[in-house]
């Protein structure tokens, strides 16, 4: 009797986990592709399948992972955030501008950068939600403004950060980069929040059907402001990490991240229109894309080909999604 109950509850638990993480059958395809890339990489290069290289990949995917996480949240809410190019640039020079050499200044710099990120994101949200401008336009505009501001501040990499902070960023625990561990925690926390917090459910609700959400009493506008603010906050985290890696604040650090942030979200199966999807898909897609880039690099394939491959992956991913939903 007890064993039967346990059997059923194990199955139920599994089902709940799948629902909580928004696991879909599509994710098996991504996992399959990851394995495929892994196999091809191992054949193509001796260095690929080494532990050192895997840790390298983990190091390299940190920024993309954080930015893609931010984009996932915004897209789930039915919006889009194209402000990362300017946002990252400005936040980098801002953080590096503190020239933090002691813990106290560093703490202040981190707090101020996070606050600025959240504030700038919040502005995106306010204009989107309260003025009613399409987020595509708003965030494209703020990105341009912020890029200009960052370049005005310094048109070349400037500022610095304490060496001990760089050490923390470069630190590894049993070979695994701290940045990667941090990213995993961040994804787990976000997934938990999407499943167990009001904010998470509101996000899905307004991305799915804004009018219905409003009728149901969801504070649509506040939620929108919050999601863009969170997106800005995550951008600030990425900026702090980047400064820690490079040792300086590069006003051009964000170039390309506006569009690159969208790729993993779409490949991971999140609906561009909002409402459907989750962070697990994005995580898998980030791993796939990073492994692929790394494998091609090690096989001495020109980065121009990498662009072609990445573009094809986006198109294939979306085609699969379309085909799936027509069934």
């Amino acid at each position: 009797m007890i064993s039967i109950d346990q059997g059923r509850s194990f199955k139920a638990t599994l089902k709940t986990w799948a629902r909580a993480t928004r696991f879909e059958s599509l994710h098996w395809v991504i996992i399959g592709l990851i394995l495929m890339v892994f196999a091809l990489g191992s054949i193509g290069s001796e260095r690929f399948a080494t532990l050192a290289n895997i840790f390298n990949v983990q190091d390299q995917l940190v920024v993309l992972a954080i930015i893609a996480l931010a984009q996932t949240l915004v897209i789930l809410s039915g919006g889009i955030d194209l402000s990362f190019a300017g946002m990252l640039g400005l936040l980098c020079v801002f953080f590096a501008g503190f020239n933090a050499q002691d813990t106290q200044t560093l703490a202040l710099a981190i707090a101020a950068t996070l606050a600025l990120g959240a504030f700038l994101g919040g502005i995106n949200g306010v204009i989107t939600a309260y003025v009613g401008v399409h987020p595509f336009i708003v965030t494209l505009g703020t990105s341009t403004v912020l890029t200009g501001l960052a370049l005005l501040h310094s048109n070349q990499p400037s500022g610095s950060v304490a060496l001990f902070f760089e050490d923390v960023v470069y630190a590894r625990i049993a070979g695994v980069p701290c940045g990667f561990i941090f990213v995993i925690c961040l994804y787990a926390l976000t997934a938990f929040m999407l499943w167990r917090s009001n904010f998470g459910i509101r996000l899905y609700a307004i991305g799915n059907n804004e009018v219905a959400a409003q009728i149901s009493g969801v504070p649509v506008k506040q939620t929108k402001v919050l999601v863009y603010a969170v997106s800005g906050l995550l951008a600030a985290l990425a900026a702090i990490y980047m400064v820690g890696r490079f040792g300086v604040g590069d006003p051009r650090a964000g170039v390309g991240f506006d569009l690159r942030s969208i790729t993993p979200v779409i490949v991971g199966g999140t609906l561009l229109a909002g409402g459907f999807g989750g962070v697990l898909g994005t995580a898998l897609a980030v791993i796939l894309l990073s492994l692929l880039a790394n494998a091609l690099n090690l096989m001495n394939v020109s980065s121009f080909y990498q662009w072609i491959v990445e573009g094809l992956i986006i198109i294939c991913a979306v085609s699969v999604l379309v085909g799936r939903s027509k069934k």
Binding site: R19, A205, N209, S216, V218, F276
Partner: peptide
């Protein structure tokens, strides 16, 4: 005014979801 991406339970109780004492949704 149903939200098709949410579950039946989430649709019915949205904005009145039961919480644990930590403020999290009590699934």
């Amino acid at each position: 005014s149903t939200m098709s991406a949410l579950s039946v339970a989430e649709n019915i109780f949205i904005e009145a979801l039961p919480r644990t004492r930590w403020g999290l949704i009590d699934r």
